[in-house]
């Protein structure tokens, strides 16, 4: 049995929230730079230049990359041999979010109730997903998810007859419909299979993958490449003002499903892609 203190988890989450809010990951910066070099439209080039400059200013001046500092989404992998001392793990994560958003001058964007709509003033609760794994692992995939891009995400219960082409069409249509709203260049997370909620969960979780990593399955990796080409051919471009960079990457994850079903979920992420992997 391994013991991890409540305080250790809370502080690790607080640090991740602050750092993710201010420092864009290397793989995202590299993808933005590559997109900037590839773009030919002056307005697209100019926007990408500003986005890259923004990342530099945020890092140097320790300011949030975006005023929408997101809702904290955590994918926890906890081993059955791990015991959290001093409180529950969900409470520890929420305490970390509370501290990080306060200490880092991050915007609190979470409301207590979707209909009553009062701000909780500390950006909690986080949305937390748990995976119970073997041994003594404790890792948290942390993501600060913006509202503008989350709003452009969609799910569909396709039929088996729709097949691979149907999946591609649905993803492309979702991105096209989103246009400039989710702050392109975007990152597209696609979950295929499982059930309604499993597909959505896969679509979100796959956004944690690095931009330069592809699905291990060759067929799914090919699907990722094909969707990326299709999406970039839409011409939406940075901020929806035209160009050949609508997406920086497409990540696909699949799961077995029912003989009657073909669920698909598309989770759209903005260029301000704020993730951290916390290993405890």
């Amino acid at each position: 049995m391994r013991t991890v203190e409540f305080e250790t988890i809370a502080e690790a989450v607080a640090d991740a929230a602050i750092d993710a809010g201010r420092v864009l990951p290397e793989d995202v910066l590299a993808a933005l730079a590559a997109a900037h070099d590839r773009e030919t439209a002056p307005i697209a080039k100019e926007i990408l230049e500003r986005v890259i400059e923004n990342a530099r200013i945020a890092r140097e001046h320790q300011m949030p990359l975006c005023q929408d500092c997101g809702l904290a989404v955590c994918f926890v992998r906890i081993g059955s041999e791990v015991r959290v001392a001093g409180g529950g793990i969900a409470d520890a994560i929420n305490e970390g979010v509370r501290r990080g958003y306060e200490r880092g001058y991050l915007r609190k964007s979470v409301l207590n109730d979707p209909l009553k709509r009062m701000n909780t003033d500390d950006n909690t609760p986080a949305v937390i997903h748990f995976d119970i794994v073997g041994a003594d692992e404790l890792t948290i995939g942390y993501m600060a998810k913006g509202g503008g891009c989350e709003n452009m995400s969609r799910t569909a219960m396709l039929t088996p007859a729709d097949g691979r082409d149907g999946v591609i069409e649905f993803v492309v249509k979702t991105v096209r419909k989103a246009g400039g709203n989710p702050c392109p260049p975007i990152i597209v997370g696609v979950g295929i299979g499982g059930t309604l909620e499993r597909a959505a969960l896969l679509a979100k979780r796959t956004l944690l993958r690095r931009l330069d990593e592809h699905n291990d399955d060759a067929d799914l990796a090919a699907l990722e490449a094909e969707i990326l080409d299709r999406v970039n051919a839409l011409g939406i471009g940075p901020q929806g003002m035209g160009g050949n960079t609508t997406a920086l990457g497409v990540h696909v994850e699949a799961f077995p499903c029912h003989i009657a079903s073909l669920p698909v979920a598309v989770n759209i992420e903005c260029h301000s892609h704020r993730t951290r992997r916390i290993v405890l």
């Binding site: 500003r50 986005v51 300011m63 990359l65 975006c66």
Partner: peptide
């Protein structure tokens, strides 16, 4: 008028 979404630190100046 469109401002650049996600360029929030830059715009703040």
């Amino acid at each position: 008028l469109a401002a650049i979404g996600g360029a929030a630190a830059l715009i703040a100046s």
